[in-house]
Computed example of a mutant assay.
Amino acid sequence: MKFKALLLALSLSSAFSFAQEKVKYSKEDIKKMETYLFNEGFNIPSPKKISTIIMKDGTINKGYCSKVDSKRGQIYEIAIKDSATKKQITFNAENVSEMYIYPSNAEKIAKVGKYFGNIRNFGTKKLTKNTTAESIHFINQTVSLKNKKDDKEFLMQLINPEFNDIISVYYDPRAKETGGFSVGGSPQLGGGVIKSYYVKKGDKIMWLHKDDFEDNYDFLFGDNAEFVKKYPKKSVEWDYFSFLVSQYTEMTNG
């Protein structure tokens, strides 16, 4: 029995090692994987469009956003001027289930300028995501900011609503970007890759930085052997993260 158990262990180990072998991708594959599929993250709500706040008890409130209080960019309190009574009402994140707000025009204009300021964006991002006319979805999550602070409830922007069945990715307003270079005020070459997000899978939500991506690869994707074989840890890069989440979701859901 011990011998059979040893053979089984060796077999599983060999299979896992095979699945983790490096894969060489074509230029077309890499271009596809570098395409940024997440929605754009926004920080400033429009005071001119009606926001919708849904409480944990199911109550729905609508009004014009008048104030947002945040910690490290994550919202813990929001105030609206009620669209019917015109009275200002303040809501604490711990009482809110989700909300839908619109980004301000000023921020959208600034993001368009930033888009054209980096040549890499032309091939990896859609300009229309910076000028969206749609509302932004925020969801209540209890999280430790940057995995260092005490757990607290915040309203966090979901940026992969089209493929968040298994892994939900939330905007990190304080995220930095990889560096590039420019000459004489010309558009930047390279860089511009967002370095961190808040990521939730199952009951676990964490701040995920690019430096910790490899350490968390197995937690995020390791339960899908087909995915691991096609996109092994040693072959993929942080730059592909949005594609990997999308592809993992598609392959897992079948």
Rank of each mutant, 00 (worst) to 15 (best):
Y240C: 00
F243P: 09
K201P: 09
D223A: 06
I89K: 15
E214P: 03
P45R: 15
V169A: 04
S11M: 10
I194Y: 05
K176T: 13
A106Y: 11
G191W: 07
K114L: 05
K200E: 12
G179F: 00
G63D: 11
K31G: 10
W207L: 00
S97M: 12
L145W: 03
P47G: 03
A225R: 11
F38W: 15
K200R: 14
T128V: 13
Y102V: 09
K81I: 14
E94M: 04
C65A: 13
W238F: 10
K125N: 08
P45H: 12
G185A: 14
K210V: 01
I53H: 02
R174C: 05
D165L: 11
I139R: 14
K229I: 03
K146V: 06
E34T: 13
V199Q: 06
Y170A: 02
S144M: 04
D203E: 15
F122L: 14
Q88W: 10
N43L: 05
T142E: 14
N121F: 08
K111C: 05
L6W: 10
G179H: 01
S196L: 07
G184I: 10
F243S: 08
P187W: 06
S14M: 12
A84R: 12
K62C: 07
N216A: 02
S186N: 10
N224Q: 09
F241P: 07
A93M: 07
A5W: 06
D203T: 15
S104H: 10
P47Q: 03
N39M: 13
E98N: 14
F138D: 04
K71Y: 07
F241C: 07
E162L: 02
K230T: 13
K56S: 06
Y102L: 12
Q88K: 15
K81F: 04
V23K: 14
D212F: 12
S186L: 15
V23N: 02
G117Y: 06
A15I: 15
K210G: 03
V169N: 05
F181P: 10
D82S: 09
S246I: 01
K49S: 09
K195F: 04
V183A: 11
I101D: 01
